[in-house]
Amino acid sequence: MLWSTLIFGLSFSLPAHGDVTKDRDDRLKTAVILDTPTTGASTTPDGRAFLKLARVDGTTGSQVVEIVGDDYTLIPYPNEEWNSWNASTDSAADSERKYVSTNAQRVGPDGNLWVIDSGDLQNFSNSSKLISFNLTTNEVERIYYLGDATTKDGSINDVRFNGKYACLTEYTIGSIIVLDLETGDARMVLREHKSTVALMPLSAEGHFLRTQSTGELEYIHADQEEVSPDGKYFYYQPAIGYMWRIETKYLNDALKNDTTAELLPNYVEPFSLTPSTGGSAIDAQGNIYYSDGDRQEIRILAPNGTTTLLVRDERLLWVDAIWLDTKQRLWLCASQLNRGNRFLQPNNQSTTIEKPIYVYNIDVGHSPPRLDHA
């Protein structure tokens, strides 16, 4: 198999603090050790921690779990029933009250745990949903069914909050979904716009990735997203990079205004020439932290568009969704997603994932924005 390599002609300056080396950086502290990959952690201010497990290593089991105890015990969240989806035996009604194909989870500004289930819209029309769990009662507070907004070919990826509105990236078509959290109204916008569609295939560890089932190059469209701490801008990009931004007032108005929705491309502007990225987070100062899947790096993108290197470490293998907690620590899930059974591996191996799987912390000296998460 012929691998192609992505090279970005970018230069980055090192931060003044810390001793950054190519192979290992002592600022990285182990937070969790796992037997299966995770593509996202989130925490509450009082110390509860949750993970989205990615079954790309051939294992089966829960998709969303809570970490309990010092031995990293994983408890299905909110229970085993929600995590018990079986496509062969479950019904359409089951698809509305179980995780079908979760893609992300995060603690929102309201203190609830929000789970993004891209579902299986080819077979179950109400399986694509955004679920809000009350972390006091551990019960469902509300479910937003998004099948009408995404269409059967769409797959929601992640969510960010801005007051009464939420924005979700959709990665198989390439679009943004705007959701009114009060009314439940949702609309797909910027469908197949140049800012939401990947120009190049996904890349990791210096190679383009190919789908294992077909051998075709993998394109992941609108993926990473953040809202500025003042709520003015929505930042987003395809997984291969090239970050864009748009003022949120236009997105919010487009939810119910056909004219604004049609004019949205006029308000989109390029923001940064980012690389192939697994995940991102934003702090209260508006700095965006993002992973570089080719170089095992975490970089900081300042509000003025300049970029610096935070950490480079060979252990940061495909860091997916990044989380910034109230103790000013980034949670970095080294998912090794690119080495899993979703993608074609060298020598016809099903996976090349090396276990155990690690989640790391690194102090950054900044807090998360209250606008988007607790």
Rank of each mutant, 00 (worst) to 15 (best):
S195G: 13
T172S: 07
D325M: 13
T196A: 07
A254V: 08
I116S: 00
I322K: 08
H366A: 13
E141L: 11
N157R: 06
F124I: 00
R97D: 03
I143V: 10
P238H: 00
G293W: 15
L74K: 07
D26K: 09
L202I: 11
T151L: 00
I288F: 10
C333M: 01
C167D: 14
T183S: 11
A374D: 00
A16I: 11
K256F: 15
P37K: 09
Y77L: 02
A41V: 01
T44L: 11
K232D: 13
S101T: 00
N287C: 15
I173W: 06
S13G: 07
V140N: 02
I282Q: 14
I353Y: 03
D19N: 08
A334R: 03
S125C: 05
E80W: 00
K52H: 07
V64P: 10
T60E: 05
I246M: 13
H366N: 13
D283K: 04
I7C: 00
T214H: 10
Q285R: 11
G111S: 05
T59P: 01
A104G: 01
Q349M: 03
N103K: 01
S125V: 08
S128N: 13
D180I: 10
S367T: 14
Y267K: 12
K327W: 11
A198H: 06
L34F: 07
G61M: 11
P15H: 04
V364I: 09
E170Y: 10
A92R: 03
R142E: 13
W323C: 15
L310Y: 08
L74H: 01
E226P: 07
N266S: 05
E354R: 15
G58Y: 12
N79K: 04
A104N: 00
P109Y: 03
V65Y: 02
F133H: 05
I156E: 06
E225M: 15
T43Y: 08
F161N: 03
D110Y: 04
G293R: 15
R160M: 09
Y250F: 14
Y250V: 12
R312H: 13
E314S: 15
T151E: 06
K256P: 15
N252D: 14
N266R: 08
L51W: 00
K256A: 14
R299E: 06
L344F: 15
Q336D: 06
V32K: 09
N112P: 12
K355W: 05
G184V: 04
T43Q: 05
G108S: 15
V359F: 04
I33T: 14
D292E: 12
L371P: 01
L135P: 02
Y235Q: 03
F161K: 04
I240H: 01
Y77E: 03
V319S: 02
W331P: 10
N134W: 03
T196G: 04
D26T: 10
S42C: 15
L121P: 00
I75P: 02
Y290H: 14
A166F: 08
G279Q: 09
V319C: 13
G111H: 08
Y360L: 07
T248S: 15
L332G: 01
L168W: 09
T39I: 07
N347C: 05
Y72E: 06
L28T: 05
I131D: 09
L14R: 14
E96V: 08
D23I: 12
D148L: 06
R142S: 15
Q224M: 04
Q105N: 14
L264S: 12
T274K: 12
E170A: 04
D110S: 03
L130S: 09
I116H: 02
R48S: 04
R160T: 09
D46H: 02
Y145L: 03
F8D: 13
